[in-house]
C-alpha cells in the first residue's frame, strides 16, 4: 500500500478514536486503559512476521521475544479487563 492511503486510514482512525473514546463512560476509564493496552499489542503481528522469517537469526529471536511480551499483554489485558467488568453490577431492585 502506498503511504498516502495508509496515512488516510490513520487520520480517519484518529477521528473515530476521538469520538469513540469521548463516549466511554468515566466509570469505565480503568477498563478502557487495560483494554487499549491489550489491543495495542496487535504489534504481535510484526513480531510474528519477524519470528517466522528466514535470513537473520537475531531478527528471529527478537521476534520471538516480542511475541512473548505481546502475548503477556494480550492475554493479561483482556483477562484483567474482563475480571474488572464482571464486578460492575446494577442495583438489585
Amino acid at each position: 500500500m502506498d503511504f498516502i492511503s495508509i496515512f488516510s486510514i490513520f487520520v480517519l482512525a484518529c477521528f473515530v478514536g476521538y469520538f469513540v473514546v469521548w463516549s466511554v463512560t468515566p466509570a469505565l476509564h480503568t477498563p478502557l486503559m487495560s483494554v487499549t493496552n491489550a489491543i495495542s499489542s496487535v504489534i504481535i503481528v510484526g513480531a510474528l512476521i519477524a519470528s517466522a522469517a528466514a535470513g537473520s537469526a537475531t531478527s528471529k529471536w527478537l521476534g520471538l521475544a516480542a511475541v512473548v511480551m505481546a502475548s503477556i499483554n494480550i492475554f493479561g489485558g483482556f483477562a484483567v479487563t474482563s475480571r474488572m467488568l464482571a464486578m460492575y453490577k446494577k442495583k438489585e431492585r
Binding site: 490513520f10 487520520v11 482512525a13 484518529c14 473515530v16 478514536g17 473514546v21 487499549t36 493496552n37
Partner: peptide, 9 residues
C-alpha cells in the same frame, strides 16, 4: 487503526 484508537484514548 488500533494505534490511532489507543493513541487518541
Amino acid at each position: 487503526i488500533t494505534g490511532a484508537l489507543v493513541g487518541s484514548s
